[in-house]
């Protein structure tokens, strides 16, 4: 048994998201082979070789992998899948984009967004926005699986000493090309890996008011998130969204401010260790999952909280 993991990276370094997939692969058992495909990606390949649990790295350094285009990467992953029992990636937007294309090329089902490895063939995954958990068993020759990062601790980035092998590229399909990107810049921790997250909803009223949350985030070393309603209203960019179809987070502390708690939002945060809700509507569903609910006007409570944290 052996697992091929599609590693995300920035050519110089590996993405922390992929470390969660290594842990899932270790639980499945057998060899763990990391695929680092990029353009000028030697730094990332060397970093992948140091990850605890990785037994081999395949480095494919070729121009067509300079951007994570699914049309180019899927045939490469499908070719390299031969001889492996499992192909894994973390369920980021990159993994979600590429892996079903790999599965279809291999003519196998994909098991999306697993939260538990039961055995090498059997996995638990949430359905219906996490309101039900399905245990599914695959009898396909190659199991293509994406892993929900928050449910698997990251593997240690140091401690391994895998060999790095060069692989060859499959060429550019010419079907798609990268034009540009607008990435949110922030000095705060990344939303899906932050220990503390403070999120705002429709109750924030506008984007300007998110500054109040940012102030608290900076005091707690937190990331700032948002509900779908706040993103749809244009208060904050799409990458802030926590929920069924946005990001799934499970921090030690989640503070929901002006968020009512729609099913699809709860799906993205209900595995947080401690949940705080601040909302003026005492009937808001968010209070049913909150460990500490504060029924209050957020425009009064949030500045008070900020002040109290200075003293705490």
């Amino acid at each position: 048994m052996s697992t091929l993991i599609f590693f995300e990276h920035t050519n110089d370094a590996i993405s922390p998201a992929s470390l969660h997939a290594v842990t899932a692969a270790t639980q499945i058992g057998g060899d763990v082979v990391a695929l680092v495909a990029g353009s000028g990606c030697d730094g990332a390949a060397q970093a992948a070789a140091k990850v605890a649990g990785v037994t081999k790295v395949i480095k494919v350094d070729s121009a067509e992998y300079g951007h994570t285009l699914a049309e180019n990467l899927a045939p490469l992953i499908a070719k390299l899948a031969e001889g492996h029992s499992h192909v894994l990636a973390t369920a980021t937007t990159v993994g979600k984009n590429i892996m079903p294309r790999v599965a279809a090329l291999l003519d196998v089902a994909q098991v999306s967004d697993i939260i538990e490895v039961v055995d090498a063939d059997t996995f638990v995954r949430p359905i219906y926005a996490g309101n039900a958990l399905a245990t599914v068993k695959s009898s396909d020759a190659t199991k293509v699986v994406t892993v929900r990062g928050t449910n698997f601790d990251p593997a240690a980035a140091e401690g391994g000493s895998a060999s790095v092998e060069d692989g060859s590229g499959e060429g550019d399909t010419g079907l798609s090309s990268f034009v540009g990107q607008e990435l949110s810049k922030s000095d705060r921790p990344e939303l899906t890996s932050a220990k503390v997250v403070i999120s705002g909803g429709r109750g924030m009223q506008n984007g300007e008011n998110f500054k109040m949350l940012e102030e608290i985030a900076d005091k707690l070393g937190a990331a700032v998130g948002a509900s779908r309603a706040a993103v749809d209203a244009g208060f904050v960019p799409n990458d802030y969204q926590v929920g069924q179809t946005g990001k799934v987070v499970a921090p030690d502390l989640y503070i929901a401010v002006g968020i009512s708690g729609a099913i699809q939002h709860l799906a993205g945060m209900k595995d947080s260790k401690v949940i705080v809700a601040i909302n003026k509507d005492e009937e808001a569903p968010i209070f049913q999952v909150a460990d500490y609910g504060l029924v209050a006007d957020l425009f009064k409570a949030v500045p008070e909280l900020s002040e109290a944290l200075d003293k705490a």
Partner: peptide, 15 residues
């Protein structure tokens, strides 16, 4: 292709 072994409710949160 996949066999559904079981479908259960997630653990309840005591909020």
């Amino acid at each position: 292709r996949l066999q559904t072994v079981k479908v259960v409710e997630p653990p309840k949160r005591e909020g």
